[in-house]
Amino acid sequence: YLASVNPGKNKLITEQILEASPLLESFGNAKTVRNDNSSRFGKYIEIYYSQKSIVGAKLSDFLLEKSRIVTHSIDERNYHVFYELLEGFDTEEKRKYGLTIPEKYFYLNQGASMAIASKSDAHDFQSLLTAMKILNFTKNEQETIFKILAAILHLGNIYFSRTVDDASHDLIQISSKTEIEWCSHLLGLNDQGLLQKLTHKVTEARDERLLSPFNLEQALDSRDAIAKALYSTLFSWLVARINQIVRVNNSVDNSIAILDIFGFENFSTNSFEQLCINYANEALQFHFNRHVFKLEQ
């Protein structure tokens, strides 16, 4: 609405601000049991005005639901962008990143809900590419984004199995090194270096550097932690990149700030992240009630 009534002559900046929304929706929204397009992060956007015209904006993000990257409940999905990527890529592009169908990826198939009746992932992938073009993302930046997303999917398909050494100590081994090789290739890492990070803990004491093998649970936690770190860092970079494009380059007279945050939620399984989200929501509601209603009185 603010963009449609903007009287300014510079329509590009308003178009770029508008295109930031579908881009962040792809990376920050997901299907839940209650909502096919649920926002899984908080967003605070400031719209800046000069002489009654929009001249720029600034985005802030918070409380991205990191746990969804590696696990989700039945009838839910991971973030939209993964499914859009797999539906939007042609055969050659999938081959380039070593990708196939969503059902083949552990991070995507846990909810047994690959598609949404009200959403076309292939169409939305084209909208995502359009948004990136309008926001001046370079081809190299787009390719890097796709490499990170593909690497996360390959990372989730790294499986471990228990074994024992001669002293009857529990050890783990990688079931297949193919996914390790794909992850290393896409992220520009050394195969052995990534393998070591997934299977061993490094302890440094004085001049010594000791490697301690993980047990199965620790290895899975390590794998998931790397995936969450990759995605959350990518998401933060996207917000920073958008801010570079829509930043204010001249003086500002006024601004309007809009807060978009998910409401209180109670699922069958609630993580610590959900507690933080619910607490933030309740705190904001208390602030609103205390100040707005008191002022009305």
Rank of each mutant, 00 (worst) to 15 (best):
V239I: 13
P213I: 04
E25S: 02
E296W: 11
C276H: 09
L230F: 10
M132I: 00
E103P: 00
Y44K: 05
L198P: 08
L153N: 04
E143T: 13
H80C: 05
H169P: 01
L211I: 10
D121S: 03
Q173L: 13
F160Q: 08
E87L: 06
N35P: 06
A257R: 13
K104I: 03
P213K: 07
A280N: 11
A229H: 13
T163G: 06
M132F: 04
E204M: 10
E87A: 00
L23I: 11
G193M: 10
R40C: 08
I134F: 11
E25R: 10
L99H: 01
V239M: 05
F89E: 02
N289I: 11
S212C: 03
T203L: 12
R95T: 14
F27P: 05
P102N: 07
L129N: 11
T100N: 08
Q51F: 10
I101P: 00
I134V: 15
Y49A: 00
S251G: 02
F41K: 00
S212T: 15
S268E: 06
E282C: 11
H291N: 15
D166F: 14
Y279W: 01
E84H: 00
S53R: 11
K228G: 02
G263P: 12
I226W: 05
N37K: 13
F286A: 14
S38G: 00
L259C: 05
D253N: 15
N254V: 08
S271V: 02
D75P: 03
H185L: 13
G8R: 09
I74C: 03
V239E: 02
I145R: 03
A30N: 04
I134M: 10
S161G: 02
L155F: 02
T138M: 05
I261Y: 02
A131T: 05
L63S: 04
T91W: 04
I45N: 12
Q244A: 12
H200V: 08
F264W: 12
A167L: 12
I242V: 13
F235V: 14
T71F: 05
T144Q: 15
W237Q: 14
I116P: 04
F264G: 01
N289W: 12
I152Q: 07
H287R: 10
D221T: 06
D124S: 09
A115I: 12
E76I: 07
V202W: 08
R206T: 11
R40F: 00
D90K: 13
L108G: 03
